[in-house]
Amino acid sequence: MNRQHYHALSENAIMIDFGKQLSIEKNARILTLAEQIANNPFLGFVESVPSYTTLTVYYNPINFHQDSFKQVCLLLDTYLTEMEENNYQSRIVTIPVCYDESFGFDLEEVASHNNLSTEQVINLHQTNEYHVFFLGFTPGFPFLGGMDARIAAPRKKIPRTNIPAGSVGIAGQQTGIYPIASPGGWQIIGRTPMSLLQIKQQPPTMLKPGDKIKFQSISKQAFLNFTSS
C-alpha cells in the first residue's frame, strides 16, 4: 500500500492525491476511479468528490470496527489496482452565450486589459473547447480548463454582491458560468439563457465532470427567445 497518496481529510473522508500537475488525462483517471467506486461501492461508502488533482472519498466509520482510515485505504488500493484505463466518455455540450454589453458588464474591461477589441475577446472565448474538471463552489458551477491566455484578466478589485444566474466570467486564466445568482469577483463577459441546474432531474446539473463545452455567440434577440421558449 502506497500510503503517501492518502490523506485523512477527517475521520470520515480520505483524499487521494494524484500528484501535483493537473491534466485532462489525470482528470479522466480521477473520474474513472470515482465512477468505478460508485458503480461497485464498498460497504460504508457515502460519496466521492473529484477536484483538479484529488479524489476525496467519504465513508461512514460505523461500518468499520476499528481504524477505518487504514481499512478504507486498503479498499481504495484495490480499486486503484483494478482500475480499467481511462474509459471515461466525454460529451460535447454547446452553451449559447449572449455577449451583449447589457449582460457582459466587463467585456470592455477584459478587452482593454488585453489590448484587444471586444469582438476579438468574443472570438477567442468561443473558439476553444473547454474541459469540465469538476463541479463545486455552487451547485452546478463548472471548473473549466482550456481558456486562451490572451483573454485572461484579473478578478474585480471590488467583488459584485450579486451576479445574475447564467453569467459567464473570466478570473485569471479561468472561465466559468454562474448557475445561480451569487456574489463574486469574476469579470463578467456575457450570459447564457441555458439553465445549468435541473433540480427535478437526475443528475440535478446540466454539466458533468469530464464534459467538453463550446460557447456559441447568440444575439440578444436569440437570448430573449430562448428564455421565453
Binding site: 457515502v46 468528490v49 469538476f134 463541479l135 463552489f137 448557475p179 440535478p204 446539473t205 465532470p209
Partner: peptide
C-alpha cells in the same frame, strides 16, 4: 444532503 457534493451541492 449526501451524494451530491460532486454536483456542487
Amino acid at each position: 444532503r449526501f451524494g451530491y457534493q460532486s454536483s456542487g451541492f
